[in-house]
Design a binder for these strands. Structure first.
Length: 428
RNA sequence: GGAGAGGUGGCUGAGUGGUCUAAAGCGCGGGUUUGCUAAACCCGUGACCGGGAAACUGGUCCGCAGGUUCGAAUCCUGUCCUCUCCGCCA
């Protein structure tokens, strides 16, 4: 969330930013409530001060009569304090709700508007879209013919949106994980395998809403746990409530987790096969930085994503996401959209990675701070997240782009050491 | 799952109802001494919310949430977490 003081002092800019992002937020009400909060805080402080004074006097009372009189005085003061505190708490609670509803500020260079036409294509990957001398198949057909993918089996045991990977698809999943991991290890990331569940408190701190009709999150009954939608949640939550020394920053982590998404309200959108599923595996990058490091870290994350997909010889374009399409915590977001020849009538781009600079928006909620060198006090770190590889969509791009006329799929050179062979199929 | 012990500032750790305004040490900042570095010594040093131009100052915080009391780090209840032992288990 944004700093309350910042919101109050920059109410007009914050309100304008909300409009650009298409978020309804009552900034004026928050400003008024903050004035009330300040006044009420003064009253509570004053009552507390007097009550403390009385308590000390009782300790030094000369006789029983004085003690009793002071006790009554103290009791009355505490009652008043409790009442004053209750109204302060009510004000704070309402401020908190409003404050949480306000999205992060936006990067001044991020394109305005919303929707595909508003976002800006920054560049394309090294690999051009393939030219097929045969009608290319989509990954569902390829997956069935090569016995890689069992959507019916997934539906039987868990419902629509679940799947079994089979045979070489299993090896491909593991190969992709290790391929991404090795590149990140070489770049100094600390690798982790994170929990697939997290406390709702952590989900909220990172910016996910565990319950409600539009939620993307599966929650576990009779517990305060939810299945994570991304390792961003667990990696960000990892350092909640900590104060870091400036020399430790930036901290670069990567995490492998399963990701679970309800995809509520997503029905009807292009979602054949593996594109929009309830569960997939993802290797996620995450960084904690000082404020002056975060912009270059975002570029770095984007560059790493490009290297990963260039290495897989998958065509893609890099998108600077329009302000109206940013999620609440993101200050700026770059997406990689891979070319998927089997998607739509004649191929379409589909999102395969996403990297965001969340500045101090998540850190404030999670209370992750650092001590700036040579300054007193603490400041919030900046957090960034980025997809190294989301396996399900990676598989789509890989199968569809590298399919051959004989029905086989070529494995790009960079992946062969991990996959163990140069092709999948054709079936004998 | 059962029994026991514990959770205190950036870290270690003392503190069992009122001078806790939280000891001490480490670390950190400044200074003195000093070829440099280091050591030694001296001084300072928590976070959060307010007030004030500033000096300074009010309040809150001892895992978290409640409760008892005029007063709670300290007593009570719940909860989360950690450790030890037992049970179960891949």
């Amino acid at each position: 969330m944004l700093d309350r003081k910042f919101i109050v002092e920059n109410a007009a800019a914050v309100q304008e930013n909300c409009q650009r992002r298409g978020v309804k937020a009552d900034v004026d009400r928050l400003v008024r409530l903050d004035a009330q909060r300040r006044e009420q805080q003064g009253e509570v402080d004053e009552l507390n001060r007097r009550a403390n004074e009385v308590s000390k006097l009782i300790g030094k009372a000369k006789d029983a009569a004085e003690r009793e009189a002071r006790k009554n005085e103290g009791r009355e003061l505490r009652e008043k304090t409790a009442a004053a505190q209750a109204s302060l708490d009510a004000i704070l609670a309402e401020i908190d709700v409003l404050q949480r509803g306000i999205p992060n500020m936006s990067h001044p260079q991020a394109p305005l508007g919303s929707g595909d036409e508003a976002s800006l294509e920054l560049r394309r990957g090294k690999t051009p879209p393939p030219q097929f001398d045969f009608p290319p198949l989509d990954h569902v057909t390829l997956g069935e013919r090569l016995d890689l993918l069992d959507l019916e089996g997934g539906a039987k045991v868990a419902g629509h949106g679940f799947y079994f990977l089979r045979n070489d698809a299993v090896l491909l999943e593991l190969a992709l994980q290790r391929y991404a991991l090795d590149l990140l290890l070489a770049e100094g990331f600390t690798p982790t395998i994170t929990p697939d569940l997290a406390r709702n408190e952590i989900l909220q701190g990172v910016g996910y809403i565990p319950r409600g009709p539009e939620t993307q999150i599966y929650s576990v009954a009779d517990s305060d746990l939810s299945l994570v939608a991304t390792a961003e949640i667990t990696l960000g939550g990892l350092l909640a409530e900590t104060i870091l020394e400036a020399e430790r920053l930036p901290i670069k982590l990567c995490g492998i987790s399963h990701c679970y998404r309800t995809e509520a309200g997503a029905h009807g959108r292009a979602s054949r096969g593996l594109y929009r599923v309830h569960q997939f595996t993802k290797v996620e990058m995450f960084a904690f930085t000082t404020p002056d490091q975060s912009e270059s870290m975002l570029d770095y994350f984007c560059e790493l994503e490009c290297r990963l997909f260039d290495g897989l010889e998958i065509p893609y374009r890099v998108i600077d996401t329009a302000v109206g399409d940013l999620g609440g915590p993101a200050y700026r977001k770059f997406d990689l959209e891979a070319w998927m020849p089997g998607r739509g009538a004649a191929g379409e781009f589909g999102e395969v990675t996403s990297t965001s600079n969340c500045t101090d928006y998540q850190a404030r909620r999670l209370s992750i701070r650092y001590r700036p060198k040579g300054e007193k006090g603490t400041a919030f770190v900046h957090t960034l997240n980025g997809t190294a590889i989301a396996i399900s969509r990676g598989l789509i791009a890989l199968l569809e782009n590298h399919q051959q006329s004989d029905g086989s799929v070529r494995i790009p050179a960079a992946l062969r050491p991990y996959f163990g062979k140069g092709a999948i199929g054709p079936r004998a």
